[in-house]
Design a protein around this nucleic acid. Sequence first.
DNA 1: TTGTAAGCGTTATCAG
DNA 2: CTGATAACGCTTACAA
Lengths: 426, 426
Amino acid sequence: MNSPRAPRGAEDRARGGGAERARHPGSPPSSIRDVALAAGVSVATVSRALRGLDRVSEDTRERVLRAAEALDYVASPTAASLATGRTSVVGIVLPFLDRWFFATIVSEIEDVLRRSGFQVLLLNIGDRSGEDSMVLDQRLLAKRIDGIIVLGVDLEAAEASVLRRLALPVVTISASLPGCDRVGIDDVAAAESATQHLLALGHRRIGYVGGDSSNDVRRATAVDRARGVHHALAAAGLALEPELDAVADWTVTGGWRAAEGLLARRLPPTAILAASDEMAIGVLCAARALGWSVPRHLSVVGIDDHEMAVTHGLTTVAQPVRSQGRIAAEMLLAHLASGTRAAPARDVVLSTAMVLRSSTAAPRTEPRPRRRAGAAAAVGRSPRADAPTTPVPGPTPPESQSQSQSQSGQTRTPRGGQRAGSARRP
Amino acid sequence: MNSPRAPRGAEDRARGGGAERARHPGSPPSSIRDVALAAGVSVATVSRALRGLDRVSEDTRERVLRAAEALDYVASPTAASLATGRTSVVGIVLPFLDRWFFATIVSEIEDVLRRSGFQVLLLNIGDRSGEDSMVLDQRLLAKRIDGIIVLGVDLEAAEASVLRRLALPVVTISASLPGCDRVGIDDVAAAESATQHLLALGHRRIGYVGGDSSNDVRRATAVDRARGVHHALAAAGLALEPELDAVADWTVTGGWRAAEGLLARRLPPTAILAASDEMAIGVLCAARALGWSVPRHLSVVGIDDHEMAVTHGLTTVAQPVRSQGRIAAEMLLAHLASGTRAAPARDVVLSTAMVLRSSTAAPRTEPRPRRRAGAAAAVGRSPRADAPTTPVPGPTPPESQSQSQSQSGQTRTPRGGQRAGSARRP
DNA sequence: TTGTAAGCGTTATCAG
DNA sequence: CTGATAACGCTTACAA
């Protein structure tokens, strides 16, 4: 407690004289009572006046505003929360903050929510692989937030039930939680597109670098994208060779290592599809390090249209990232405003689009160059002044780096009950 | 208010029966009074027992814990804040969340603070160029946070004075605020290193893509890095040609456009130094699009060691990013714990290191290839199946993508009073 | 060791 | 239109 048994009395208030007082760093912040006294009204009136409620005469409101201004008064959000039960804070549950997809979405969510007077509390649960990954429990959530956005995390059953008990409005992005609003893309279809692109070019021996379908934080995404690949191959009468089916951890490094493995096969693939652009970029690095020319000897496709996909000339399936954040935030705001947490859950599926760049081409029939012995080992951190570097013509710079997400073809499909995998693919 | 004039009485409490009650979504969360009643002690005792204070018998504590558990009780942080005046929330002021440097640092800060029981509130003020950039004022900060970290933003005078009035502990990263603790790198020295590297290779005609030194959010960084370039050139008896001195907005696209300008000069540079890796990557794209071979016809250097620097084979000056976040968070925690906001401000300067990759080499005396007419215009979004792509041997993948920041040579230099630009460079 | 009760700064009810 | 005041849920000085 700040100063029990020592209520601020008249003698205390006398020393400052209002505005003057607030100017000094050491002085205690003024409370609604100070304003009431200064304006000559009751605290109730101050509260009403300051919040713009009606039933306050213009004259009074004016006096109150003036007094508040003079005292540098700002209402304590803590006290207001205690009284109202609302916090004006929204939690975002995510597995990483330092990856492009997540950072971009959070940025957009924060932007939308801030304009509506909400603040964002980060609930980073980590990648779940280590032992110190945060678990979502009551303590972290109860009474702190008004709503929650679950971003790219497949929650465990216990966590989902905690969320349900909290009875908060919940919106998920790229993650499913039965009964909650959801926004995302059709991961199956996205992977299908990428695969079909390679098939159309004539590739038959296609490698896949996917996410971990068993115990990844992004399990659902990993599963769906893998399914898309299988579907597309099956439709062409092909199957994914087990030896060309690699798993990585969604990172550049992971994709790099996985590709090293694929390219070392006795019968290597003529094309590699990665479940994310970051992994695809890793594949490009592996190819380069091993002396494979892209797209001459190897085609590479990713999914996401990462900010750095264009700089690598990477062909990919673009998903609208900022839009997902914006829509999720708006859906949550709608619930927050109306108090309707029930209603039939909605599932917003945004469309994706193939973006063709310079990392894919028809497979060559001519043999690839002999693997240079020790090629990978020979390269190090020293500058290679004489390294041959023929430029790959790339696209022109995008009009604007930010905000250029394609949002065409968005579809909002109402949905009832639980989401079935195929329900989102008409 | 939740239910004025309707205090929860015995009849209310009778309907649930403790634990059973909390299981149902609709039931109100239990309060400290419920626990007190269930454990047969006073609320004061519950408070003490649950917070691990002494002066509580083991037996009592046990009963209280059991009751709290049964009731799914979790203390209201709001009420606790109101009573103690502390919020356990730290604000982070930043200009962007969707750029690698910022996302990575925030991620690290969040991690450190979370382990100490603090939560992170994002205060994204935007890039300040638009009219809707957020201004830091009382309303946003007062009574909501216990401390603040200012990340990569040069605050305006008014904002700095608001911060001072709030009397909160403040730590800045890559930004200076007189009298506050600071952590960062020596931007002047970093730019000097990069320049010296090019000079050592034999380059004399060096182009520079810098940040905006006049009205950028990151003004100080822009100024310091530019100064480093000028210093190094001057030390070599050279000067930065005005026509080779370009300004961009720290983005890939910005660097791309700036480089297009530089490469179009009648006497183009043989090397380009960009003030950030993102801009340097843009330079690489421009060079590629215009048919310039890197490093054969153009050397490119950046600053940062962005996550994607390695994938582009970009030579750069690495700065320890996560370390900056970690150290800043720890400094803030120290203040929070000790209550010492005064003390002489400290200035922690972390060391940087040149990372040599494949984007730099000695300048060639042979003429560069004739500019292919319309080379830039010829490339589009269509796949270029026959694009020549000779791979550039690159480094092997890093051991671990995250956490691999070099932290050797960190120096912590005590500092009193205001920070002078040259004070950090012994 | 434990209980009592004031106080934190608002909001919202109800009476004027 | 305004004021008095209970209540929000917790912490803590002080008394027991």
